[in-house]
């Protein structure tokens, strides 16, 4: 006799609605990092295949190598599981935002980005957004010790590609609901408000600030970088303050100091003072759904 272990048909919930609810529950449990990887990966593939994004496969592979090696070493040092999602996101972001001639420079960017998670910590969280740390470190190196080693290409986005980024970004935020949509919104609105205010003050046509808001690096930054839950404050108000700070700093660096890559430096600076901002609004640390699930499954 064969025993039937499948759930008997009659015990299944009748009707369609509970099925939808089930799908919804599962959907909600999907780690937003998968959605981010999917969005960034699709953008990268589209950008490279269409020739709109001038990134080489070799450099992309180098960035990945740097990021994963740094993750493996870092994980081994603090005796924790080596994670795959985070270094992959860092790699994809770097490929979209950073350019270099030499593959080793991209590898270094990946290693610095992921390495910063282990090297710079405050309490039980890392301080810098890993991809941002990689970009900033390489831009600084390129401007000082290693002239021209890496650079960003903020102008290199056709309108089609930009539209794709905006769609993917909006899609990502809506579906992921990574608890950080507000960070993107507050940043975007503050930056846009400042740019428009400046134009009104100068008597410039509004086409000028609007043109600024269509900058490729800016859009990618707003949707995918500043929304990282691990390096933005946990409390809602401190997060808003953080986003405003990034926007104001970015504005000042761009328009008063004429630093083309101002947004990246602004985020790094804001991350540095994040513990201060958070001190006034203690909140529970964000946990990725996947990690939360794993923690829950762990036997006590």
């Amino acid at each position: 006799m064969t025993s039937i272990t499948a759930t008997p048909l009659e015990t299944r919930p009748p009707g369609g609605a509970p099925v939808v609810a089930g799908i919804r529950r599962t959907w909600r449990r999907i780690d937003p990092r998968y959605l981010q990887i999917f969005s960034l990966g699709a953008l990268l593939i589209y950008g490279m295949a269409s020739g709109l994004l001038n990134q080489t496969a070799v450099n992309a592979a180098a960035a990945a190598a740097g990021a994963f090696v740094a993750q493996a070493i870092g994980s081994a040092m603090i005796a924790t599981r080596a994670r795959l999602l985070s270094p992959l996101i860092t790699t994809l972001s770097l490929c979209l935002l950073l350019r270099a001639d030499a593959p080793w420079a991209m590898a270094l960017a990946g290693a610095i980005g992921v390495g910063s998670k282990f090297a710079f910590r405050w309490g039980d969280r890392h301080i810098f957004n890993p991809a941002n740390a990689g970009v900033v470190a390489m831009l600084l190196l390129g401007a000082t010790a290693l002239p021209g080693v890496a650079w960003s290409s903020p102008g290199q986005w056709g309108s089609a590609f930009l539209l794709a980024v905006a769609l993917a970004g909006a899609g990502f935020l809506v579906t992921a609901r990574a608890a950080r949509t507000d960070a993107a919104l507050v940043f975007f609105l503050t930056f846009a408000g400042l740019a428009c205010a400046r134009a009104l003050y100068l008597g410039d046509p509004l086409t000028i600030p609007f043109h600024r808001l269509q900058n490729g690096a800016f859009v990618l930054f707003a949707f995918f970088m500043i929304t990282d839950p691990m390096t933005t404050p946990n409390g809602r108000w401190s997060r808003a303050l953080f986003s405003v700070l990034v926007a104001v700093l970015a504005h000042v660096l761009t328009f008063n100091f004429f630093i083309v890559d101002g947004i990246f430096y602004a985020l790094a600076a804001a991350c540095l003072v994040r513990p201060l901002i958070e001190a006034f609004e203690p909140a529970k640390n964000y946990q990725w759904p996947l990690d939360a699930c794993r923690a829950a499954q762990k036997p006590n």
């Binding site: 001639d101 002239p147 021209g148 290409s153």
Partner: peptide, 12 residues
């Protein structure tokens, strides 16, 4: 609409 802003790259 805007003035031309330039950037030097390391691409030789």
């Amino acid at each position: 609409p805007e003035d031309l802003i330039f950037k030097q790259t390391g691409d030789r």
